[in-house]
Amino acid sequence: MKTRTPLDRNDLQIQKKDKVIEIGSGHNPSFRANVIVEKYIYDNTQRCDKAKIYPHQTFINADGENLPFKDKEFDYAICCQVLEHVEHPDIFIAEQCRIAKRGYIETPSMIGEFLFPKKSHKWVILDIDQKLVLFEKSQMPGNYQKDYGELFLNYLSYQSLPYKLLGLTEGEMMLNRYEWKDNVDIMVNPQEEYYRSFFLSKWTREMTEKIFPPRNLKTELLRTSTALMHILKQKINQKFKKSASPIDLEEYLKRKG
């Protein structure tokens, strides 16, 4: 079940003693993960750069739909920007729930996919009623050819404080951020008109408020101040906490030789 919507992947409820796995970490692995799983070592088609890994991490070459681990072997599973690529999302998610007690899933939202689409993305995803609802992108109406990722991913996210605050206070605008425990409620290509309408029809005010619930002034101020403090904390950590840098996975495998 869904437990919360974190501010971002640096706001996860991972305990100090937790054994953590990351599935499909790509070029941006989480430093907190103990084990990294990647299906593709040399093929960068579905990621932005070469796969990377931190020296302290253990690497496993495996398919996320068939993970070589025991039931509940891990306390926490991280999976960012992967679910939208996979062939069988129900199997992929079931495997994470099998091997881990808790976890975090991050994907582009429907709006995010529209603004910075990727050809390798098979699914458009929304968080509706605490469910991750996946709809096959090939069935979606609209223009998914124009990619504004340079603006929204590579420019504003680094240059604009108001944009950063927007991303943190309106959690589902560009991303689905889904922290879970025990299981993940997932729907793939739903047949119910209620869920299909979010992907195929113009949003009404009722639909908009379902994804972005109205908030009172107190909640709005609290969210904004929390987001601002989160950004400041990250900036301070970047300045004063020096951590190791990830290395190319190819180099890591050569060292392990």
Rank of each mutant, 00 (worst) to 15 (best):
M1F: 09
T3H: 05
T5E: 12
P6R: 05
P6M: 08
P6Y: 04
R9P: 07
D11C: 02
L12V: 00
K17H: 15
D18Y: 12
D18K: 09
V20L: 01
I23Q: 03
S25V: 08
A33L: 10
V35C: 06
V35H: 09
V35M: 10
I36P: 01
I36M: 02
V37Y: 08
V37E: 03
E38C: 05
Y40A: 13
Y40P: 03
I41Q: 12
Y42M: 08
Q46C: 13
R47F: 09
R47H: 10
K50I: 12
K50A: 14
A51L: 09
I53Y: 02
N61P: 03
D63F: 06
G64F: 10
G64H: 11
L67M: 08
F69M: 07
K70W: 04
F74L: 05
F74E: 07
D75W: 11
V82S: 07
V86A: 02
V86R: 00
E87K: 14
P89T: 00
D90L: 14
D90M: 13
I91G: 02
F92G: 06
I93D: 08
A94P: 05
A94H: 09
C97D: 01
I99C: 01
I99K: 00
I99N: 01
A100E: 05
K101A: 08
G103W: 03
G103C: 06
Y104S: 05
I105F: 13
E106T: 03
T107C: 09
T107W: 06
S109Y: 04
S109F: 04
S109Q: 03
S109H: 02
S109M: 02
I111P: 04
I111G: 03
G112W: 04
E113K: 11
E113C: 12
L115Q: 06
F116R: 10
K118Q: 15
H121R: 09
K122P: 00
D127H: 12
I128K: 00
Q130S: 15
K131V: 06
K131Y: 04
L132S: 06
V133H: 03
F135P: 01
F135C: 04
Q139Y: 12
G142F: 01
Y144D: 00
Y148A: 07
G149L: 00
L153W: 10
L153D: 11
S157R: 14
Q159S: 13
L161E: 12
P162W: 00
L165E: 01
E170R: 11
G171Y: 05
M173K: 12
R177H: 03
Y178W: 10
E179G: 01
E179N: 03
W180A: 02
N183F: 12
D185S: 14
M187R: 11
Q191H: 10
Q191R: 09
E193C: 08
Y195G: 12
R196L: 11
F198P: 12
F199C: 08
L200I: 07
W203H: 14
T208P: 00
T208Y: 14
F212W: 15
P213Q: 00
P213N: 02
R215N: 06
R215G: 03
L217H: 12
M229C: 13
M229F: 14
I231C: 03
I231H: 06
Q234S: 13
Q234E: 14
N237Y: 12
N237S: 09
K239V: 06
F240Q: 05
K241L: 15
K241E: 11
S245M: 11
P246E: 04
P246D: 03
D248S: 13
Y252V: 08
Y252D: 05
L253N: 06
L253W: 04
L253D: 07
